[in-house]
Design a protein around this nucleic acid. Structure first.
Lengths: 145, 145
DNA sequence: TATTGTTATACTCTATAACTATA
DNA sequence: TATAGTTATAGAGTATAACAATA
């Protein structure tokens, strides 16, 4: 069976990504999070620490880009920035319990939001689709850049 | 089988879309096309005409956004802008044969570029993935906005 | 009055350069 | 000298407002 006629990959991916992002915005707003704020909370994951530069790199942002974001999250008690005793230039960034809670709640709602889109796919297709998407995404984010 | 742990949809889609777009750029440059120029050539499709406003809407661009793009494409003989005899405000935009050739060549190379990414997927998965992607994309672009 | 195409302006987002304090 | 964090500036991309011509 030959491949069906279809738009270019980027022509499908880019609008879909935009739509997904737009759909997330109201959810994030309910938790007083910006897209970058949410990205930071996700980027901190469960590993306890990071330097700001490493964190920025992990979420593919400029190091200057996230400073205001960190300021805001810290002031609201969602993250901590502790001076590294071993290198007084660096700040160790970590999630507070409140930050973890906020992150998890926001993510749960975002996953529910995604269901609206994914519900269009039959269960078997859906599993394959997500597996493929994750494969492509992983192979891409591994790149040196 | 429960769904595997995975990043948020948008967190996978957005970087992938960016990577795909970035990979297209060198191809488009070889044909002296910008992303918007390519989008315009694709938007003109095989239907002969449009008004500029309708074309802009079809490719989800601002009507003011594409004016410079149309100027450039017209000057290079890839499109035509004919005054509509029925409504002298409107311009009927159409592809010239040269425009069609350029569009088809660029698209062929872009499809080859996509193969690098898609080659990671087993043939069966790949077909399902593309079918799903097209389904989600179509349901989304149908939206009123 | 509404609409097409256009230009000029303002705004948002991002990257670049420059500074400080440490190493 | 090199690096972490920071600030201020400049750039790209986009949308908004305003205009002339036509309906």
């Amino acid at each position: 069976m030959p491949e069906a006629k279809r738009p270019d990959l980027a022509a499908m991916m880019a609008p879909l990504a935009r739509a997904l992002t737009a759909a997330e915005l109201p959810v994030l707003e309910r938790h007083d999070l910006t897209m970058w704020g949410y990205a930071v909370l996700l980027g901190l994951g469960d590993q306890p620490v990071y330097t700001q530069a490493a964190l920025a790199k992990a979420i593919r942002a400029d190091k200057t880009r996230i400073i205001g974001v960190l300021d805001d999250l810290q002031q609201r008690g969602l993250i901590r920035r502790d001076p590294d005793p071993a290198d007084r230039r660096a700040r160790l960034v970590s999630l507070t319990p409140a930050g973890r809670t906020t992150r998890d709640r926001a993510q749960r709602e975002i996953r529910e939001q995604e269901e609206i889109l994914l519900a269009q796919l039959p269960a078997a297709d859906r599993r394959t689709f997500l597996r493929c998407l994750q494969t492509l995404w992983a192979s891409n984010t591994d790149r040196p850049d």
